[in-house]
Design a binder for these strands. Structure first.
Length: 455
RNA sequence: GGCCCUAUCGUCUAACGGUUAGGACACAUGCUUUUCAAGCAUGGAACCCGGGUUCGAUUCCCGGUAGGGUCACCA
């Protein structure tokens, strides 16, 4: 009857568009995707927007966009709000079979108002089902009473629409979070009353916050878009989310989507909840960032640097910035790190001469007169270095290395580095000098010398 | 509270009755061309408790404890 019905594995992505795409939603999509693609199955994206008050188009789009961003796709799309007639038909069938009834009662949402909700006649039995991850689970459904399945004959509730759609769309495997375990018996009751076949259920554990409770907005970023804005790469997010709560047989920790599909087996999903560890996500992101070549990395890293510097009023220079790419690449895990340190002024000295603090110019315990001598010597050595060599940190180093070694590296190199950066912490002086170029580097050394000579 | 699920380093996990309980992230220390970062090396760090079953339990069973989920006219 339904053209969508066919043999083979069929799964669904059933998000409720009542908020931006949550990492839990992302995981639901990843797991269903892996299972479906591994088994040459079909994926149905079903927007569960039966809650008219909380569902929005914006959220629905965000969820679809986020899922695609992760590199996933689906084969069919439905929106429950457009399928009301299907649910009305099912509800009527239930009533006709005397398995449900319309109940006139006072609205629980609006006091004083009388509504006609539809309640399922509870057979009050023990429902058992086989969970593909947890084994047999059984419930006594008596405590559920005659639960409500629709606010009105044409206004179905979640449990009804899910059961009807899963049957109508020929869903073979319901892979969802464990928060749905206790929803399963009531859905099975509806299913049995309607005479539908039972799909295979698999309930995977939840992502936990650092305090081990359910991940929530209050405890930090949970929307995929937030991670995306911070500069997390989709491959990193996908890898991390995919492997949290699942260990592939190979034991590999860095896997592409294709590799995950190859290795996926629902039986390998874990039973207990896993803490969503930001540090590990950052580590994953760095691993994928390291795979980018300089051009790709520049496109990734420079915009946030430029924005941050402009915001704090530091003049921006594209050429200088380009020379910074290598250095940035070796010290960040995610783009947000650049914004953060740039906003803290960590990169200012590359673009504007620093204001060295007299007391910081000499190496710890070094005298002013020695420091002046060292800086003068370094300056003279660098002055002689031909212009072409200034783009190469190694050659700059070569120019002063011998002197620094004989005079004491710390005594020479600290003042040199500090003169160039005005910072206690920074990349090494040769790296910095190669970014600054000859003119600026010598000017900064002179400047430090002037400060020292005022003593 | 009722019902359901779960239980190995701080975190993610391997182990499928016999192991010096392995790896990754994080952490500590050291090394590398001064500082920082990165990198490399080394190190500390776990079987929730109590009963069984067994020659032998981290592993199997039961109980307890702890954590989580769920008890809507949300999904």
């Amino acid at each position: 009857m339904n053209p969508n019905k066919q043999n083979g594995v069929r799964v669904r992505f059933p998000p409720s568009p009542t908020g931006y795409c949550h990492v839990g939603t992302a995981r639901m999509a990843v797991l269903n995707y892996l299972f479906a693609r591994k088994n040459d199955g079909h994926i149905i994206f079903r927007s569960e927007d039966t809650d008219k008050e909380r569902s929005t188009k914006e959220y629905e789009e965000d969820i679809m966009e986020s899922v695609k961003w992760l590199g996933l796709d689906w084969d069919e799309f439905y929106r429950q709000s457009e399928r009301t007639s299907v649910y009305v038909h099912a509800l009527q069938t239930l009533i006709d079979k005397d398995a449900a009834y319309v109940s006139e009662e006072e609205s629980k949402k609006e006091a004083g108002q009388i509504v006609k909700v539809v309640r399922l006649k509870n057979p009050n039995k023990v429902v058992k089902f086989q969970d593909a991850i947890r084994g047999e689970i059984s419930f006594d459904t008596t405590e559920l009473k005659d639960f409500v399945v629709a606010r009105a004959i044409d206004d179905p509730l979640y449990h009804l629409s899910v059961v009807v759609d899963d049957a109508d769309m020929g869903i073979t495997h319901v892979i969802r979070g464990e928060e749905h375990i206790s929803n399963t018996p009531r859905q099975i009751l509806i299913q049995e009353a309607l005479g539908y076949a039972r799909p295979i259920y698999a309930h995977y554990p939840l992502f936990l916050g650092a305090d081990k409770s359910k991940l929530s907005k209050r405890k930090g970023d949970v929307a995929v878009r937030d991670y995306r804005e911070d500069g997390f790469l989709p491959e990193a997010m996908l890898n991390f989310v995919g492997i949290l709560g699942w260990t592939p047989p190979s034991g590999k920790e860095i896997l592409s989507l294709g590799e995950m599909v190859q290795e996926f087996d629902i039986k390998d999903l874990h039973k207990s909840g896993a803490v969503f560890d930001m540090d590990k996500l950052r580590w994953y992101n760095r691993q994928y960032l390291l795979k980018k070549d300089d051009v790709e990395f520049a496109a990734y890293a420079l915009p946030p640097l430029e924005n941050a510097l402009k915001e704090r009023g530091v003049s921006w220079d594209e050429n200088t910035a380009k020379k910074l790419v290598q250095d940035l690449k070796e010290r960040i895990s995610v783009a947000a790190d650049i914004s953060e340190s740039a906003m803290a002024g960590e990169f200012d000295f590359f673009f504007a001469d620093p204001m060295p603090d007299l007391s910081h110019i000499p190496q710890k315990g070094g005298s002013v007169s020695d420091t002046i001598a060292h800086l003068e010597s370094a300056k003279n050595l660098l002055y002689k270095l031909e212009n072409e060599a200034w783009s190469d940190a190694e050659r700059i180093k070569g120019a002063v290395w011998e002197y620094a070694t004989s005079a004491g590296r710390g005594a020479v190199l600290w003042p040199l580095r500090y003169a160039l950066t005005g910072k206690d912490k920074s990349p090494d002086p040769f790296e910095v000098a190669s970014v600054l170029g000859k003119t600026a580097a010598l000017r900064r050394i002179d400047n430090a010398l002037k400060i020292l000579q005022t003593v």
